[in-house]
Design a protein around this nucleic acid. Structure first.
Length: 491
RNA sequence: GCCCCUAUAGCUCAAUCGGUAGAGCAUUUGACUCUUAAUCAACAGGUUCAAGGUUCGAGUCCUUGUGGGGGCACCA
C-alpha cells in the first residue's frame, strides 16, 4: 500500500467511526452560522470572560491536542478563528466525535466567544457538528503546497493553503461588480451574444475552430464581442455592453491565456473621446474599491505594483500616436524612407508589407513597453483600423485610442465606423503583408447589411478584464487572476 | 517553434567526487485541560517523472520523451 493510500485509509476508518457514532460524515444543511470576520470583533476584551454564543463553520487548518483540551483553528471565506474544545465541557459522546477530527475536515460549532489566558480570540465549543470529513491527506501545515503545477491543477488547494489567493480572487469579483455598477449608473444595458460564430471577426487573432454536427458546419469560438454588439446598436439598444469570455488560439505567457474575459461597451451618439471619459470612470471607480478594501490611505489613487506603484488619479494624459512615434524614432512616421530604413535595422520584414503595419511594429518595439501610464495613446494610422471611423479632416488617421498601463494594453476603443460602403471596402482590402488570419478585416456581409440599415454614430470600448484585475491587484501573471488557467492535460 | 531551468515520502526539502536515499511537518501509538507552525517519546512511510544507455555500481552522468517554470518568438 502506498503512503497516500495508508493515510487515506486511516481517515476512512475515522469516517466509519463517525457513522458508528450516529453522525453524517458528509454533513447536512447548517443554518445560522456567521462569517468569522464578523464574529471576531464581538469577543470580550478581557481574557477568560464569556461573551456571546455564536455559530461558525469552516475548515480545520491547525490542531493542537493537549490531551483533554484541544485548540483547533478553522477558517471560512472571511477569516480564521481558534476553537477551544474541552472534554469536560462536551461530555463523552461529543468527545468521541472530537477524536475523529483531522486537519482539513469541515466542522460547524456552537459556543461562547472567549479569549484564552494568552489573549487569543476563541470560540469555547459547546457543540460540535461534523460537516465534511476530508479523506485526502493534507499538505504541510506551515508551508502548504509550493509546487506551482499542483497549485494550478488543483486550484482549490491553492485557495485553501496559499495566503492571499482567495482574497485576490474575491477582489476580482469586486472589481467586476464595480464595473457593472459604473455602467448601470450610466444607463448601459448588459446583454449576452453568441460565443459560436460562423465568422470570427472583430479582432485580429487566430480562432479556435469547432464543428456543429447536426448542421455539419465549421464554427469558430468568438475572438471579440464587437460585431454583435454593434448589430444591437442598429436595433436600438443605444447603450450596451457584454462581459464575456473570448478565445484566441495563440501563445500562453504571463499576460495571455487562451480564454480570457473582455468587456466591450458601445455608446450610441458618442465617439472615442466619450469612451476615454468612460474608461477613466470605470477604472478609477474599480481602483477606488480596491484601495478601500486594501485599507490604503492618501488623497491620490495609488495602488501597489511590485516594488513600484501605479497612480490611477485622473485625468490621464492623452498623447498622439504620431507624436510618441516621432519622439522615440527621431523622425515622423510619414517619412516612409526612414521608417523602412529603421525597420530593416530591427529585422522587421518590409517587403510587400503595408507601411502602416511597419510603422506599428516599430511603435510596439520603440514605444509600447515604455508607457508607464495610465496614458491614452490616440489617433492611430487608419489602415490598421478597419472598423474605425476616420478623422473628418484627415482620412489617414483613425479615431482610436489604446490605454496603456505599465506597458500593458489595458483598453482599446474607437469612434465606430458606421459607413456601410466604406466598411465593405475595408473588409475587402486585405492589407499587404498580413496573413488573412492576422487581419481584423474579415468580410461579413450580414454585418455590412446591418450598417446599411443604419447604425448611429457611436463610441466603442474594449477592456481586458483579466489585465484590469492584474493591474489593480498587483499580480504580475494572468494565472494569478484566473481561477482555472489552461493547463496541458497530464498524461 | 527555439533556448535555459526543473521533477526525490502525502507535503516542504536534503543527499559532497558516481558508492547503504535522509530530515521536518502530516500520519500511527502513548503522555499532557490555555496551546499559537504546541511540546515530549516511539513506530512507520520510497517504482528518486517515464523509457532506454554508460558503469562493478546511477537520485547523481548520457539520450529520448512527458509535465511544470522562466526567456525568446508569436500575439494591436
Amino acid at each position: 500500500m502506498s503512503e497516500q493510500n495508508r493515510l487515506e485509509t486511516f481517515r476512512v476508518e475515522k469516517l466509519q467511526h463517525i457513522i458508528d457514532l450516529g453522525h453524517d460524515p458528509y454533513g447536512q444543511r447548517f443554518d445560522g452560522h456567521r462569517p468569522i470576520a464578523e464574529v471576531r470583533p464581538l469577543c470580550p476584551e478581557e481574557n477568560g470572560i464569556d461573551g456571546e454564543e455564536v455559530r461558525v463553520a469552516g475548515r480545520i487548518m491547525l490542531k493542537r491536542d493537549t490531551g483533554k483540551l484541544w485548540f483547533v483553528n478553522i477558517k471560512d471565506m472571511t477569516g480564521n478563528i481558534q476553537l477551544m474544545i474541552s472534554k469536560n465541557e462536551l461530555g463523552d459522546e461529543q468527545w468521541a466525535l472530537v477524536k475523529t477530527l483531522d486537519l482539513a475536515d469541515i466542522v460547524g460549532v456552537d459556543g461562547l466567544l472567549r479569549k484564552t489566558k494568552t489573549g487569543e480570540i476563541s470560540v469555547y465549543v459547546k457543540k460540535l457538528t461534523i460537516l465534511t470529513k476530508s479523506i485526502a491527506p493534507p499538505p504541510e501545515k506551515y508551508h502548504g503546497v509550493d509546487d506551482v503545477e499542483t497549485l494550478l491543477r488543483h486550484r482549490y488547494l491553492d485557495l485553501i493553503y496559499s495566503d492571499g489567493v482567495l482574497d485576490r480572487m474575491l477582489l476580482r469579483s469586486s472589481i467586476i461588480d464595480s464595473v457593472r455598477q459604473t455602467l448601470r449608473g450610466n444607463r448601459f444595458v448588459e446583454v449576452e451574444t453568441p460565443v459560436l460564430h460562423a465568422i470570427a471577426g472583430g479582432a485580429a487573432a487566430r480562432p479556435f475552430i469547432t464543428h456543429h454536427n447536426a448542421l455539419d458546419i465549421q464554427l469558430y469560438m468568438r475572438i471579440a464581442l464587437e460585431l454583435h454588439l454593434k448589430r444591437l446598436m442598429v436595433g436600438g439598444v443605444e447603450r450596451v455592453y457584454e462581459i464575456g469570455r473570448v478565445f484566441r488560439n495563440e501563445g500562453i505567457d504571463a499576460t495571455h491565456n487562451p480564454e480570457f474575459t473582455m468587456i466591450e461597451i458601445y455608446q450610441s451618439y458618442g465617439n472615442y473621446e466619450t469612451m476615454m471619459d468612460l474608461t477613466e470612470a470605470i477604472v478609477t471607480d474599480a481602483a477606488r474599491i480596491v484601495k478601500e478594501k486594501l485599507g490604503l490611505e492618501g488623497d491620490r489613487l495609488v495602488l501597489p505594483w511590485g516594488d513600484e506603484t501605479i497612480d490611477f488619479t485622473s485625468p490621464w494624459p492623452r498623447k498622439k500616436y504620431a507624436d510618441l512615434f516621432e519622439a522615440a524614432a527621431g523622425f515622423p512616421m510619414t517619412d516612409h524612407e526612414k521608417v523602412i530604413e529603421l525597420a530593416k535595422t530591427k529585422h522587421i520584414q518590409t517587403e510587400n508589407v503595408h507601411i502602416d503595419v511597419i510603422v506599428n511594429k516599430l511603435f510596439e518595439e520603440l514605444v509600447e513597453d515604455s508607457l508607464e501610464g495610465p496614458v491614452f495613446v490616440i489617433d492611430y494610422p487608419a489602415s490598421i483600423c478597419p472598423l474605425t471611423k476616420r478623422k473628418q479632416n484627415d482620412p489617414t488617421i483613425a479615431e482610436r485610442f489604446e490605454l496603456y498601463v505599465k506597458g500593458m494594453e489595458l483598453a482599446n476603443a474607437y469612434t465606430e465606423l458606421n459607413d456601410p460602403r466604406l466598411q465593405e471596402q475595408l473588409f475587402k482590402t486585405q492589407l499587404a503583408g498580413q496573413a488573412e488570419e492576422d487581419s481584423m478585416a474579415k468580410m461579413d456581409h450580414e454585418f455590412v447589411y446591418a450598417l446599411k440599415v443604419g447604425m448611429p454614430p457611436a463610441g466603442g470600448l474594449g477592456i481586458g478584464i483579466d489585465r484590469l484585475v492584474m493591474l489593480l491587484t498587483n499580480s504580475k501573471t494572468i494565472r494569478d487572476v484566473i481561477y482555472f488557467p489552461l493547463m496541458k492535460p497530464e498524461n
